[in-house]
């Protein structure tokens, strides 16, 4: 027991608004992740590996004679880089899986909701922690590849800048999708391991069977089951490259639909979580 027991005095300062409260959750969450060895390793490896491979893919595409001058379609290669799928899964599992699950496990969710914030504020803050980290493998490599290619003189700055703009949009789409899916899975269980496994299941459990079945059956519409193939179809179309065999508009609708649905279900789920027990 403190000797200087009742020393504190009533605070008479106005409280900051909701934006600052949400920002406090984001800043603390990001700081926490940037201090966690597992998260640092995954982020560093993911960003480095996807960037290097994206640059290599772009470089190879430009040196192989294809009979056409370097143009925007060359950027569909780095955008379809399979390492992005691997590292986005890893990053979502290592960083995102625990974002809500840990709060449910420790019941810290009660503390958050006893504060002057809403469930939506909480979810937006959690999404804002995960999204920039996911963007390190979904957007950053594409931007850096375009930048390096322009510096080395493989592409004109006009094409590179256009490619960077498209990269932000398609990479942003992938970032939103994985952020929503990961938070949804994280909200389903108090154990982050289950959520992490769920991210891998959604990616590889759908992508690999869908591609195998497409080869076996010969019906490409099965690829609509795979989030990665939907993304590749949209990215390829955005960079003006030839179609991957599935309609990019349908693929885009599926990606956006699933993103919105996952976000809505997560919100409803968080609204339903018991805040006070006992």
């Amino acid at each position: 027991m403190s000797i200087t027991l009742p020393t504190y005095s009533r605070l008479e300062i106005p409280l900051l608004g909701r934006r600052q409260r949400v920002w406090a959750i984001i800043a603390t969450g990001l700081r926490k992740e940037l201090r966690r060895p597992a998260a640092i390793v995954v982020m560093a490896l993911g960003a480095a590996f996807t960037t290097i491979t994206s640059i290599a893919i772009l470089f190879i595409a430009t040196i192989i004679p294809s009979g056409q001058a370097p143009n925007l379609t060359f950027f569909s290669g780095p955008a379809s880089n399979f390492f992005v799928l691997f590292f986005v899964s890893l990053m979502a599992s290592v960083i995102g899986a625990g974002l809500i699950a840990d709060d449910l496990q420790s019941m810290a969710f009660t503390l958050y909701l006893s504060r002057p914030i809403t469930q939506l504020d909480y979810l937006l803050a959690k999404a804002a922690i995960l999204a920039p980290l996911v963007a390190m493998v979904t957007i950053l490599p594409l931007l850096l590849a375009a930048l390096v290619a322009a510096f080395l003189g493989f592409f004109s700055w006009t094409i590179a800048l256009e490619a960077m703009g498209i990269s932000i949009v398609v990479g942003g789409l992938l970032t939103l999708f994985y952020t929503a899916i990961t938070l949804f899975l994280s909200s389903l269980s108090r154990r982050k391991g289950i959520a992490g496994a769920g991210v891998f299941a959604v990616n590889f459990g759908l992508t690999i069977p869908a591609e195998v079945l497409t080869i076996v059956i010969g019906n490409r519409s099965i690829l609509y089951l795979s989030p990665w193939d939907n993304y590749v179809a949209v990215a390829t179309a955005a960079f003006g490259a030839s179609s991957t065999g599935i309609d990019w508009a349908v693929a885009l609708a599926i990606l956006l639909g699933v993103t919105v649905l996952a976000a809505l279900v997560t919100y409803v789920r968080m609204k339903a979580v018991e805040v006070i027990t006992g």
């Binding site: 603390t28 420790s106 914030i117 006070i276 006992g278």
Partner: peptide
């Protein structure tokens, strides 16, 4: 709250100040 609800990997002062900021 009645039940255990603290964030285990934060320090005492870190947690309390964090909750202050969220308030």
């Amino acid at each position: 709250p009645e039940h255990d609800c603290l964030i285990p990997d934060m320090t005492g002062v870190g947690l309390v100040s964090y909750m202050g900021r969220v308030s």
